[in-house]
């Protein structure tokens, strides 16, 4: 029997497979395809204090082995989440995680404070790295002091597990990771999307309404694995790895590079059952290689 369980500090997960924010709705969008209880956890779409309409269409452009998006945090706001969504996911055996986004520190704090009232909610993921809205958090996530300030402020009001999602669009992700660790983060997740751009040369127009957007998918995976490896060796808190994971082997790369858990994003769009297939693939890998505890492979590189 293979042990797939993992821990992010005190947060226990039955397996290391989570879903990435913005790629899995509120989980319920996928319940026709998978049993949510089978996941390690799932991170729901970016939630802000007030409802947001997001950016104009077109919001997506397919690129070689990847996609650009500029959704811009469209969501119904934290009250909508608490009233209409939370009751339907709160009893999941897997761990629901709310991704918290904002434009100002006060908004992050107010949103986290409100979520702290949900006793069953064990973790939030602080999004200080959205590239798609003006001051959509990436402003905080790109400087050590900005990251430190927002994480410290949320730390004061959020008593349970605090994951901080980091932007790769920085000079040194290691320095940012150290800052948020110092500010009280319980773990870091990385990477958010890479800022990118694509042009329709026939129409001589940018492909996205906002001109630039976030690149995800297999195209970003080598960058993500490198960053996870660097950060995992530089901080003492657990690292959640994500960026282009399509299958169990990809997940294993992140785990061997030092990730205690992984998030699956864009792959959910292509195969809504991919998370379950990754969990089964991790089990099969361990059996094939005589590994009894998956986390024994963590950080072996």
């Amino acid at each position: 029997m293979v042990d797939l369980s993992t821990k992010l500090k005190d947060l226990e997960l039955q397996n290391p497979v989570l879903t990435a924010s913005g790629t899995f709705g509120f989980g319920t969008e996928y319940s026709d395809f998978i049993d949510l209880d089978s996941l390690g956890g799932f991170v729901v779409k970016g939630t802000t204090l007030e409802a947001r309409q997001g950016n104009d269409y077109p919001r997506m452009a397919e690129t070689p082995m990847g996609m650009l998006n500029c959704v811009g945090l469209q969501n119904g706001g934290v009250e909508h989440f608490i009233e209409d969504i939370w009751p339907s996911i709160k009893d999941c055996k897997s761990v629901p995680v709310v991704n918290v986004s904002g434009a100002r520190i006060e908004d992050y704090v107010a949103c986290s404070e409100r979520l702290a009232e949900l006793e069953g909610l064990k973790a939030i993921e602080l999004n200080i790295s959205c590239p798609n809205v003006k001051q959509g958090g990436m402003a905080f996530g790109t400087t050590c002091s900005g990251a430190h300030d927002v994480v410290s402020a949320v730390r004061n009001v959020w008593p349970r597990h605090l994951i901080v999602k980091l932007s790769p669009n920085v000079t040194s992700i290691v320095e940012i990771a150290k800052s948020v660790e110092d500010a009280g983060a319980d773990s870091v997740s990385l990477i958010n999307t890479l800022l990118g751009m694509a042009i329709d040369v026939e129409r001589r127009r940018p492909m996205l309404s906002t001109i630039t957007g976030g690149l995800s998918g297999p195209a970003v995976k080598p960058v993500a694995v490198r960053m996870v490896w660097q950060v995992a060796h530089a901080v003492g808190i657990p690292v959640v790895g994500l960026g282009g994971i399509m299958n169990a082997n990809d997940a294993l790369e992140f785990i061997m590079a030092g990730a205690s858990a992984i998030e699956v994003g864009t792959a959910n769009f292509i195969n809504p059952r991919v998370t379950i297939e990754i969990i089964e693939g991790l089990k099969a890998y361990c059996e094939r290689h005589g590994v009894t505890r998956l986390m024994d492979l963590r950080g072996i590189i």
């Binding site: 913005g22 790629t23 899995f24 709705g25 969008e29 996928y30 779409k45 309409q53 997001g54 104009d56 269409y57 077109p58 919001r59 997506m60 452009a61 996609m67 998006n69 959704v71 469209q74 864009t266 959910n268 769009f269 809504p272």
Partner: peptide
């Protein structure tokens, strides 16, 4: 036929402006 990524209402890429918003 707006450009879609997931087809399931998860990615929020294919939005159309309607009287109910995006």
């Amino acid at each position: 036929e707006n450009m879609m990524a997931c087809g399931l209402g998860a990615c929020l890429c294919c939005v159309e402006k309607t009287v109910k918003g995006n």
